[in-house]
């Protein structure tokens, strides 16, 4: 019969062993052990989900889904077996389920343009520019350092992926991420000061 090997070693081993014992206690009804376990495995779950999903809101939703799932099937954990393969299998399965749900949703949803009118009353139909004050935005952009401006232009305006933008600028993905993040913060600050 095939069994997953616990691939962890060193300090990770002691962590996995601690979680195995906490899960064992949780199966006996120890609420504090269970609470500690769920809090400690959160970063692992976020990492597993984050690899597939970019948006923080989606990641949190799927992590919560995984927590509910492992709570529902906690009797399926055999205390004699390693904890990590049990946890990772449930997490991956729920991530795959979420991906399937998301793709089937996108197949049945239709993207529609902006609806011109909402109600008959005039004050509900004031035309607005979705991007706010374009001039102020252009001024704020020109005030940014070259690296940050380029990162925002490529990723936010031209909608390039991190990889594509990194290839276009010849910088690393990490450096580009930092530039875009700092640029967005500076833009927000500049626009808030103007308004």
């Amino acid at each position: 019969m095939t069994r997953h090997r616990d691939n962890s070693n060193g300090p990770a081993d002691s962590g996995a062993e601690r979680w195995r014992l906490l899960m064992q206690a949780a199966q006996r009804g120890d609420k504090s052990a269970y609470s500690s376990l769920l809090r400690e495995i959160l970063p692992v779950l976020r990492a597993i989900v984050g690899r597939r999903w970019g948006s923080r809101q989606d990641v949190d939703d799927i992590v919560q889904d995984i927590l509910l799932s492992l709570h529902a099937v906690r009797n399926s954990y055999d205390p004699a077996r390693p904890f990590m393969p049990w946890l990772v299998t449930i997490a991956r399965r729920r991530v795959a389920d979420a991906a399937r749900r998301s793709s089937s949703r996108s197949m049945t949803e239709a993207l529609v343009g902006e609806v011109a009118e909402t109600f008959f009353a005039e004050d509900t139909n004031v035309p607005s520019n979705g991007y706010g004050d374009a001039e102020a935005l252009a001024r704020a952009m020109s005030g940014l350092p070259q690296g940050q401006r380029q990162a925002i232009e490529l990723m936010k305006l031209r909608e390039m992926s991190l990889k594509e933008a990194a290839a276009a600028t010849g910088t690393s993905v990490g450096a580009l991420k930092v530039s875009a993040h700092r640029g967005m913060l500076a833009l927000r600050k500049a626009l808030a000061a103007k308004s």
Partner: peptide, 8 residues
Amino acid sequence: IPGFGRRV
């Protein structure tokens, strides 16, 4: 049972 391989 989560954690069993597919070969089984």
